[in-house]
Design a protein around this nucleic acid. Sequence first.
RNA 1: GGCGCGAUGGCAGAAUGGCUAUGUAGGGGACUGCAAAUCCCCGUAUUCCGGUUCGAUUCCGGAUCGUGCCUCCA
Length: 452
Amino acid sequence: MQLYNTLTREKEIFAPMDARNVRMYVCGPTVYDFAHLGNARPVVVFDTLYRLLKLHYPKVTYVRNITDVDDKIMAKAKESGEAIDTITTRTTKAYHDDMASLLALPPDIEPRATAHIPHMLALIAKLIEKGHAYAVDGHVLFNVPSMPNYGELSRRSRDELIAGARVEVAPYKKDAADFVLWKPSTADQVGWDSPYGRGRPGWHIECSAMAKEHLGETFDIHGGGLDLIFPHHENEIAQSRCAHDDAPLAKLWMHNGFLTINNDKMSKSLGNFFTVRDLLAIAPGEALRLALLSAHYRQPLDFSEEALKKAKQTLDGWYGALRNTKDIAFDANVAVPENFMAALDDDLNTPQAFAIIHDLVSQLNKTPDTKTKSALLSAANLIGFLTQDAESWMRGSSSDGLSEEQILALITARKDAKAAKNFAEADRIRKELLDAGIVLEDKANDTLWRRV
RNA sequence: GGCGCGAUGGCAGAAUGGCUAUGUAGGGGACUGCAAAUCCCCGUAUUCCGGUUCGAUUCCGGAUCGUGCCUCCA
């Protein structure tokens, strides 16, 4: 398979370091609030990659961290008066639930930052020992000029960084580009004892420490959002390589594009974000997943509720084909179609993969047979689609609106009216159901219904 | 100011040095008591200006517009 490597800015043939165990690290959430859709995109994208890798290789170790110590969490705790643990535990649970709703498989290992403080301190000590970091006033800073090839991922020189710097340079820094590995905590702030005084980790060190602990010094794939390239991933590389005798951190770096709303970047600071939770209230997770994968992962994706509705309609069509062929058997031995695999193996071309699913759906409608149905299901299931029972998908769920009993009673009443050739009454009932969001499909022997 | 990305039909969105995706919307037809679903048929596209080439939407240069990053961020 081919994957685009941010490091080389080219598609490369993927060759794992150890084909018996492919290792992948993806930057996970800082748990202080509900996940927004921008957080969900990388989860769904790398879940798709994870599923593909699992198909190609006997074992994949997928690590996605939970950042449970951070100034944003501290600020939230101060604001709400809750304990940090309470916030991180609750938010982590919500994150797990939301991502499961998006049909994302859980990672193999989900390390928490607070459980790796000793690993971070060990890494920091090594960096100081090797002359790449220095302690000053309770801070420990990584000295960027100590690494000659700093900036390879983002392709920035140190001079450019300083020239463009928007922030004031802290007086204790030896160099303007130096970044924090460890910072002091006041008595009322969360902190851990260390040789540099009581404090807490900087933003980047946790990923270096946890990746080393769970995947080793060098692993296959490191993923995350585009905005992590600089500074986060650049600094992870600096820390890890300088601590590990210049061993590369990851062979392949993958970054998903942004989610936009009306072509503006969706972000917390702009306030133009949707939480996954809010969207799950108006559409099934599978529809959200489809919407998130409907553009290639490296392209920007402009999200709207309209796009989400379209995704739901598309799935109605796919599930409709399954419901119409419910008597056709599924054969698990039928392979995923080659062109479908080829699309995904070409740097996760999900739009192309969906085009092939559309084609299979259309074939199934025309020639309903086990071979076609099985090809469709094996393809769709591979990347987390069409895993539900078609009938239950069509019936959906609705807390308000008509109950299934009411719907079935109306359908029976309409059937009686039709038998009596009272078409005006039959149409009136159908209109009543339509107004309640129920669409009927008359078949030869019975009437099917679905929620729109 | 520095670094980068993008521009494809009404909309969404792939691909490609010659054949033109897919979906959706729209038009016509089949089926249906009428619908729905499904099937068949049909329009509409590669931002602009140069260059390379037998041939460019694709490669190269420039312009315009949009957008991201430059120590909060997926």
